[in-house]
């Protein structure tokens, strides 16, 4: 068993303010010149990963997660009839390289996925940037990719055996620069009448030393009152252009289902289709209709009513 303890140092800060202690007693709490917007940590990631995998209970997870500044897992034991059903267990812990382009050392995407017997999930995910000339030292660029899905918040229409949030890599800005794609699957499928699906996709990347979300859109959404099927289904398709940085084209379609197909929908659903285009400008994606877009001129946003 790997026993080499990872050492997480609170590196003395230079110009960065400490986080208030109430935010997290375990968080690496110092910013440095190399890490002006994040928090500096020193950790041997392989050892950290093994230590997390060898932890078995909430307190163990809390301590190991805290080493990287992760929020502790919520206590779900109170939500379930049997406390053990609510206890979270580690499903996987992974460290993935994210290429930064231009020959820079890769960032590290660190993820830890937890699940309980009732189906609740917690994803802890952050991006660490290696500090130059300091092996084992990283700047934590943000854990905004972390995600929670409570028991019952699963999709209820589409079969989706995958996790609540899956992370993958996409070359959005340049062939040698990785961005992160987060695909979320949620909804509600517990007892009670109001149920549904909500699938969304978001693109993330590191800009000026900070993890930012470039774009987010719903790819499928439908809600209904069980047992009656949904009357409105929203679908979204995301297309990426071939050229760099890639332009994102998002097409949203709303389909209506009537209780009586020969009649108009009775609950205000109106079918439509629209397209919007987003381009990467100055470190972020902006809709081409946005006046902050490039000098090349206003882009094209198509909104089209679709007759029944």
């Amino acid at each position: 068993m790997f026993l080499l303890a990872a050492f997480v140092a609170l590196v003395s800060g230079c110009g960065g303010g400490e986080r208030p202690p109430e935010e997290s007693a375990l968080r690496p709490a110092v910013r440095g010149v190399d890490c002006p917007l994040g928090f500096t940590v020193e950790v041997e990631l392989e050892a950290w990963q093994e230590r997390l995998e060898s932890s078995a209970e909430a307190e163990g997870y809390r301590l190991v997660l805290g080493e990287l500044g992760f929020e502790p897992l919520p206590d779900r034991t109170l939500e379930e009839p049997e406390p053990e059903q609510g206890a979270m267990t580690l499903v996987s812990a992974e460290v993935t390289d994210l290429r930064r382009g231009g020959g820079a050392a890769a960032d590290r995407l660190v993820t830890a996925r937890f699940r309980n017997a009732a189906g609740a999930e917690s994803l802890r995910a952050l991006v660490l940037r290696p500090l130059p000339d300091r092996e084992g030292s990283y700047c934590s660029l943000g854990d905004h990719l972390s995600h929670e899905r409570e028991s019952g918040e699963e999709p209820c229409i589409e079969e989706h055996p995958g996790p609540a949030r899956s992370l993958s890599v996409e070359n959005l800005l340049a062939p040698d620069r990785d961005s992160i794609v987060a695909r979320d699957a949620g909804g509600w499928c517990g007892s009670g009448r109001r149920r549904g699906d909500r699938f969304s996709t978001s693109f993330w990347g590191v800009e000026l030393g900070r993890l930012v979300k470039y774009f987010e859109a719903v790819t499928s959404e439908a809600w209904y009152e069980s047992p009656d099927p949904p009357s409105e289904i929203r679908r979204g398709e995301i297309e990426l252009s071939e050229s760099w940085p890639r332009t994102i084209t998002y097409t949203e379609v709303v389909e209506c289902r009537s209780p009586d197909e020969e009649a108009m929908p009775d609950d205000g659903c109106r079918p439509f289709e629209r397209t919007e285009t987003h381009r990467y400008v100055d470190g972020r994606y902006v809709e081409l209709d946005d006046p902050r877009s490039t000098a090349e001129g206003r882009g094209r946003v198509e909104t089209q009513e679709v007759p029944r």
Partner: peptide, 20 residues
């Protein structure tokens, strides 16, 4: 028809999604 397999009655109590 949905992922809860079988729902019934006032509160649409379910058989539980997945293996739950």
């Amino acid at each position: 028809w949905d992922n809860a397999f079988l729902s019934f009655g006032l509160f649409q109590w379910t058989a539980g999604q997945d293996s739950a």
